[in-house]
């Protein structure tokens, strides 16, 4: 076991290019255990690209990403979940034709199945384990107030509810790092307030670290322990919410180089 000094997530000098476009240019930062890190930046700054690198959907040109001290860039996408990572998507990536409960049960897949050959061989002795997964999934649904709709098909639910389903699915894998891509998109004011509590509870009660990409500044600034700001693929600032809010580079990135910011 690595010492407590090792951050849970380390992103080191990551560079990603798509053809001639440099999407990420030497980005480095780390997320400490049990903390919430906000990742912000204007549209096109590279936030989602970075997410996709960490979840092994995009290939990194150079640089390293480590979870718990272990490099993950050689892990296949389906191994990410076992490494302790789970995520949600900006535009949702649920299994629309499956029920809410099934979606959440799939989330527990990586944790409960070593490999499918094993599982196929044990097909006839899995009843108990299936029941345990089901109970746990139901408990999660209850916690996120989704238990009333456990049997409904996901595709038929409103967007905000689907976002909660996706969150429940992500939690079902019992991750050590939860990555949320614009979880507040499409939520109304009250729902955002409620979501703040949900995020804090996930960190405090489940001891899960969270990496949060979000445009909703109020949400990011009020829940994050640490904020990383990207612009045009580079990290331009990092620090506590109040430090970042005062940073002239950040103000310039968001408001343009007016004199107020004293930009350079």
């Amino acid at each position: 076991m690595t010492g407590t000094a090792t951050p849970l997530l380390e992103v080191e000098n990551v560079r990603v290019t798509f053809g001639g476009i440099v999407a990420l240019d030497g980005v480095s930062f780390s997320v400490q255990r049990g903390s919430i890190a906000g990742l912000i930046g204007p549209n096109g700054a590279g936030k989602t690209t970075l997410f996709n690198c960490i979840s092994r959907i995009y290939q990194v040109d150079t640089g390293a990403i480590r979870v718990d001290g272990q490099p993950i860039l050689d892990t296949p996408t389906h191994g990410i979940s076992s490494a302790g990572l789970s995520r949600t998507f900006q535009n949702l990536a649920l299994f629309g034709k499956l029920s809410v409960l099934d979606n959440v049960m799939i989330g527990a897949h990586a944790r409960t199945t070593g490999n499918f050959v094993n599982d196929a061989l044990r097909l006839f002795g899995v009843r108990q384990r299936e029941a345990a997964i089901r109970d746990e999934a139901m408990a999660l649904l209850e916690e996120l107030r989704l238990d009333g709709i456990a049997g409904e098909l996901v595709a038929a639910l409103p967007f905000g509810t689907q976002k909660r389903v996706e969150l429940a699915r992500a939690l079902a894998s019992r991750p050590t790092l939860l990555m949320l891509d614009e979880p507040a998109g499409g939520l109304n004011h009250d729902e955002v307030e409620e979501f703040k509590d949900v995020v804090r509870r996930i960190r405090d009660e489940r001891r899960i670290s969270i990496l949060l990409v979000e445009h909703h500044m109020n949400l990011v600034m009020s829940v994050s322990d640490q904020v990383v700001v990207l612009n045009f693929g580079r990290k331009i600032a990092e620090g506590t919410p109040s430090q970042v809010q005062r940073d002239p580079h950040v103000i310039e990135a968001y408001l343009g180089s007016g004199n107020a910011a004293g930009g350079h």
Partner: peptide, 12 residues
């Protein structure tokens, strides 16, 4: 249904 999402849930 959704291969990419399934991969992220740990399904090969």
């Amino acid at each position: 249904q959704n291969p990419e999402s399934a991969r992220l849930c740990g399904i090969s």
